[in-house]
C-alpha cells in the first residue's frame, strides 16, 4: 500500500467515523462496524498467507478466542475496552505461536489440513466448554466501557472501531514496507534463498503466525464493542473461508487488496443474506470469475507503487 493510498484510507475512516453515526441508520452503522472487523480479520490472514505464504486455516478460531477473551474480560474481570481488546489479541497470539510451530515441521497442504483441524477443534471447544462460553446457548456480550462510559449502540461504537482499524491498517502497511515484511516475502518465495541471505526462517514463520493471530484476536475484541451476542456457529470454517475469499478476491500479497476485498466481499456476503439459498453459489461464481480474469486480485493493481 502506497503512502497516498494509506492517507486516503485514513481520511475516509476518520470522515466516516465522524459522519456515519450522525447520518446513517443503526443498521447501516452496524454493517460499517462489521465490515471493519472483516478488514482487521483480512489484514491478519494477509500477514500469514499473503506476506509469509504459510497456509493457515484456523483464522476463525483465533477470532473466536479474541471474542470470548474480550467478552469475559469485560464481563467477569471488568476490564476496560483497551485491556479487553489487548487480552483477546494476546491470548490469540499465544495460540497462534503454538500453531506456528506446526509450520516449522510441515508445509502446503499438510499445514493447511493441520491448521484446519485446529480450527475445527477450537469450534468444538467453544461449543462444549459450556461453563465458560455458554456452549450452544451462546454468550451475551456485556457492553464495553471506554473511560468509564459504557458503549451501548452501534453508533457509539463506530468511531472507536474505525480508529482502531485505522491503527491496524497503518501497522500492516508499515510492516509490508519494512525489513520484516521483506523477510516474510522472502520466506514465501523460497526458504532456501531466505536462509542463504541470513534470514532466520523459523523465527520469521513463528512471527507471521503470531502477528496474524493477534490481529484476528483483536478483530474479535472489536466485535465485542458493538455486538451483544456470540454463538460458536459463526466461528467455524465458513468464516475462515469467507476471510480467505476476501484476501484472494482482493489480491493475495497486497495490503490494499486485503482491505478492498474485505469491504467489497463483506458487503456482498451481507447482501446475500437476503437470498440464503443462492449465497454459496454466488460466492463460488465470484471466486471462479476472479481466478479466471483477475488471478492477482481485483485491488492489487491499485496498491502497486
Amino acid at each position: 500500500m502506497s503512502a497516498r493510498t494509506l492517507a486516503a484510507v485514513a481520511v475516509l475512516l476518520v470522515g466516516l467515523g465522524v459522519a456515519l453515526p450522525a447520518l446513517a441508520t443503526g443498521y447501516v452503522v452496524y454493517i460499517g462496524n462489521l465490515l471493519l472487523v472483516f478488514v482487521v480479520l483480512s489484514l491478519g490472514l494477509h500477514v500469514v498467507i499473503g506476506e509469509a505464504g504459510q497456509f493457515s486455516l484456523a483464522h476463525a478460531a483465533f477470532y473466536g478466542i479474541g471474542i470470548y477473551t474480550a467478552a469475559l474480560g469485560a464481563g467477569v474481570l471488568g476490564l476496560p475496552f483497551w485491556a479487553a481488546l489487548l487480552a483477546g489479541g494476546l491470548l490469540a497470539a499465544l495460540c497462534g505461536l503454538a500453531i506456528g510451530v506446526l509450520s516449522l515441521r510441515m508445509r502446503d497442504i499438510y499445514l493447511a489440513l493441520s491448521t484446519f483441524a485446529f480450527g475445527e477443534a477450537m469450534q468444538w471447544v467453544f461449543l462444549n466448554w459450556t461453563s465458560v462460553t455458554g456452549g450452544p446457548n451462546g454468550l451475551a456480550i456485556p457492553p464495553t466501557s471506554v473511560f468509564g462510559h459504557p458503549i451501548l449502540s452501534d453508533k457509539a461504537a463506530f468511531p472507536l472501531v474505525a480508529g482502531v482499524t485505522l491503527v491496524f491498517v497503518a501497522l500492516v502497511a508499515g510492516l509490508h514496507a519494512s525489513g520484516l515484511g521483506r523477510a516474510f516475502r522472502a520466506v514465501r518465495e523460497s526458504e532456501v534463498a531466505a536462509a542463504a541471505v541470513g534470514i532466520d526462517v523459523r523465527r520469521t514463520k513463528l512471527l507471521a503466525f503470531t502477528l496474524s493471530a493477534f490481529l484476528a484476536g483483536a478483530a474479535g475484541g472489536l466485535f465485542t464493542t458493538f455486538s451483544t451476542f456470540i454463538h460458536p456457529d459463526s466461528l467455524g470454517f465458513q468464516t475462515t473461508i469467507l476471510v480467505l475469499t476476501m484476501i484472494v478476491v482482493g489480491g493475495v500479497g497486497s495490503v490494499t487488496g486485503a482491505l478492498g476485498g474485505a469491504v467489497v466481499f463483506g458487503l456482498v456476503s451481507e447482501l446475500l443474506r437476503q437470498v440464503p439459498s443462492y449465497q454459496e453459489m454466488i460466492y463460488g461464481g465470484i471466486l471462479i470469475l476472479v481466478m479466471m480474469y483477475a488471478p492477482r486480485g481485483v485491488f492489487a493493481r491499485l496498491g502497486r507503487r
Binding site: R185, A186, E189, S190, V192, A193, A196, V197, G198
Partner: peptide
C-alpha cells in the same frame, strides 16, 4: 554467504 544452486532468487 552462500550462493545456492538452482536459481534460488526471489522471482517476484
Amino acid at each position: 554467504s552462500q550462493v545456492p544452486e538452482g536459481r534460488e532468487i526471489f522471482r517476484d
